[in-house]
Design a binder for these strands. Structure first.
Lengths: 352, 352
DNA sequence: CTGAAAGCGCTTACAG
DNA sequence: CTGAAAGCGCTTACAG
């Protein structure tokens, strides 16, 4: 009944195919692999035998010979998070085009666990390794003594000789600040997330570059740091409104923060974007598309990042030396929460 | 410089170890694998040689012999979604305890892609397969002719002879309805998601069972179906308030819907939970914990589900026949959005 | 064009 | 206790 309850069913082997086709196993191999020196008629006989037996070559054996396993290891620290998943999809994508398969290992931020997984993957003779961080800050290198190439994605290695692919947070901050300026906003507050993240400071740095270039200062002279949460967004918006009632834009460090800011603004009777423009970061569609109005955001293009990481890894596997940090541009995604100031009015004061 | 730019570095092999230890490769093998018939002193010499050379046995070769690869394939259809990831984590978890590694393949809802991945995994001689759906509705079987066992997780197979592990949506709906009843609510509206999902109807069915047992009817006599979005939650809450201003609870089909409902209630001046209790489903912490108040929800315990799927798969790999659908109970997570009616009052009417 | 033989890295009876 | 030999499933020179 349950035919696959146990592995008793014998898997067909090349020698089964050869026997059925009435040839040697060497000839069967050549026929199936499209080698030139096989008579057409013989090849056909072998191929049809293989089909008949539903033959699928044992890749493990093939790779024992070739010295390559056709697999890569993906060690992630953030399987539940939203950063590693798109990275991982991009990598799987790039891998899938060839005949690579991906081992997924979740190290959960624990470096012992990471070490354990790396050893296991080495034993499986993966051809290379991609390490995906949970947050964009630099992380310790796996070292340079591994027999296979490694690419660090999202979170770079602290060792500059390693290959890392990261998102440009400075550029992303600049991009969205420039957008707000282009919308005619001049009194722009910055509400950032956890100051323990390098990305938080990078995004502020980028925004300040844009403000400087426009010859205006950040509203209040400095960014408000807190956490990456809606709660903090609500609180921070209250602070901004109290201290700077004439604010005309809030640049937020994440979409979660922006959602909180939007809530407080709405409940204070401020219209978005007419009175105040609001921008997020991450372009997390769940949050951005369900916001009222929909949220202008910055997309780090993590899938591209993952694809790039995999591409670099494959180059390295093919022998091209790789090294250094590659920074990927972010992309602005304008939506309803930002727009030009209404031509009629100055920035209206509180209207509740 | 870049020592791992190409794979030139030769990987140490058991024969290297044997040579260094001055023994045959057979003896080296036995020594490292803890076979009894090896002199302690010899074993020590071999072990230290292995360490010195940083030897890591080629698992591909070992598995060629044993007939098992020590790997399983995880084919998912929802890598970007929130359902497959916890399932996958649970599976990885269960796998990690042994010495299993997991190949991750994203089929993206495309059955051709799925077929392709299954073939590739078969070629890699995985010992078993877990198929994770993107939504809880039944899906076509991969068939019964595969040489390895398969477990369907989250989305069951349509073939009852296959092994499937699913979440109990009827029970979950009943659970949360009972909770609302226990809070003293009697005028309970049900706002469900996309009626194209079996889970939507299942959750309603469970709720109705609880209502029947309590001898009360659903407010309005039927559930409102729409989509799994905040937008729909906002709209639906408006409908409920207009038609049944004396509503005292809203049972929502998802946390997203509940977030929308909460927003409309707040903007209509209704207090949650004093005037109206609100419950979600999924226990998606991002949404549930950031809600005001925090959202009572139902947790499908997807990680447990994944772990269970993997456990069943391993049993099957070990020869135990597996079959049938296993239904996992959901768990109520009470938070601030539900609670007893204030003792002082009846359900207050609109108070805006 | 076809096949016998060697070998990929390992393990396991089987002799010594 | 140790080692030579066979074999896991395949591919690739090398002879015929």
């Amino acid at each position: 009944m349950q035919e696959n309850g146990s592995n008793t069913r014998k898997v067909t082997t090349l020698s089964d195919v050869a026997k059925l086709a009435g040839v040697s196993i060497a000839t069967a191999s050549k026929a199936l692999n499209g080698r030139a020196q096989v008579k057409a008629e013989t090849r056909e006989r072998v191929v049809s035998a293989a089909e008949q037996l539903n033959f699928s070559p044992n890749v493990l054996a093939q790779h024992l010979l070739s010295g390559r396993s056709g697999t890569v290891g993906l060690v992630t620290h953030d399987l539940d998070g939203r950063f590693s998943i798109p990275t991982l999809m991009g990598a799987e994508d790039a891998a899938g085009t060839g005949n690579m398969s991906v081992f997924l290992c979740d190290a959960r931020g624990d470096s012992l666990r990471e070490q354990f997984h790396v050893q296991a993957l080495l034993g499986r003779r993966v051809d290379g390794l991609i390490v995906v961080g949970a947050r964009p800050d630099p992380r310790p290198s796996l070292g340079r003594k591994l027999p296979i190439p490694v690419v660090y994605a999202y979170a770079p290695s602290t060792d500059p000789r390693d290959m890392s692919i990261v998102s440009d947070n400075v550029g992303g901050g600049r991009l969205v600040a420039e957008h707000l300026l282009a919308c005619g906003r001049t009194r722009i507050a910055v509400v950032m997330g956890d100051p323990g993240y390098g990305a938080a400071h990078d995004r502020v740095t980028g925004a300040v570059q844009a403000f400087d270039a426009a010859g205006i200062g950040m509203l209040g002279g400095q960014a408000l740091y807190g956490s990456w949460s809606e709660e903090w967004g609500r609180t921070a918006a209250g602070i901004v409104l109290a201290q700077h009632p004439d604010v005309d834009a809030v640049l937020c460090g994440s979409d979660q923060i922006a959602r909180g800011v939007l809530d407080t603004l709405r409940e204070s009777g401020r219209r978005v974007p007419d009175d105040i423009a609001v921008s997020g970061y991450d372009n997390w569609e769940l949050l951005a598309l369900n916001a009222r109005p929909q949220l202008t955001s910055v997309d780090m293009e993590l899938e591209t990042l993952g694809r790039r990481a995999a591409a670099r890894l494959f180059e390295a596997i093919d022998g091209t030396p790789i090294s250094g940090t590659e920074t990927l541009s972010a992309r602005l995604v304008p939506r309803g929460s930002t727009g030009p100031l209404p031509s009629t009015g100055q920035h209206t004061a509180a209207r509740s």
